[in-house]
Amino acid sequence: MNFSDLGLSASILKAIEGQGYNQPFPIQQQAIPAILAGKDLLGIAQTGSGKTAGFALPILQQFQQKQPGKNRFIKALVLVPTRELALQVADVFKGFSLHLTRRVKTLAVYGGVSINPQMMALSGTEILVATPGRLLDLIDNKALHLSELEVLVLDEADKMLNMGFEEEMNRIIALLPQKRQNLLFSATLARDVEVVKERLLSSPVVISVEEEKEENQLELIKQVAYRISTERKGPFLRYLIKQGNMQQVLVFVSSIRGADNLVAKLNKNGLQAMAMHGDKSQGARTEALQRFKSGKLQVLVATDLASRGIDIKTLPVVVNYDLPRSPKDYVHRIGRTGRAGATGEAISLITKEDGHHFKIIQKKMGRKVDMLDTEEIDLKGY
Rank of each mutant, 00 (worst) to 15 (best):
K222H: 06
S254I: 01
Q247R: 07
I256W: 02
T230P: 01
S186G: 02
V206L: 15
L218V: 15
R257Y: 03
K233G: 05
N182I: 09
R232Y: 06
S255G: 07
S186Y: 00
F185V: 06
A190L: 13
I241A: 12
N245S: 10
V206T: 11
K222S: 03
Q247H: 11
G258D: 08
S281N: 12
I241K: 01
Q248T: 05
Q248W: 10
G278A: 14
Q248I: 11
V251I: 13
L262S: 01
L189E: 09
N261W: 10
F236L: 13
A225D: 05
L240E: 05
E219C: 14
T230R: 14
K280Y: 09
L220M: 12
G270M: 10
Y239V: 10
M246S: 04
V253H: 04
T230A: 14
T188K: 05
Y226K: 11
F252I: 06
E212T: 03
T188L: 11
N245M: 11
S229I: 03
A273G: 10
Y239D: 01
I256A: 13
D192V: 01
P235H: 11
E215N: 06
S203Q: 04
L262N: 07
S254M: 03
D279E: 02
M276I: 13
Y226L: 11
V193E: 00
G278T: 11
F252M: 09
S281F: 02
K222N: 06
R199D: 14
A187H: 04
I256T: 11
E219A: 12
G283M: 10
R227H: 07
V263H: 05
L240P: 04
K222M: 08
A273K: 03
V196I: 03
K197W: 01
E231T: 04
F236T: 02
Q223T: 03
L201N: 04
Q247K: 13
Q243I: 09
L200R: 00
S255K: 11
S255Y: 05
F236A: 08
G244S: 08
A264N: 07
Q217D: 10
S254K: 06
S203R: 07
P204E: 15
R227K: 08
S202K: 10
L220Y: 07
M246A: 01
Y239K: 09
D279I: 00
V209C: 14
R191S: 09
P235V: 15
E212Y: 01
P204T: 13
L220R: 12
T188H: 07
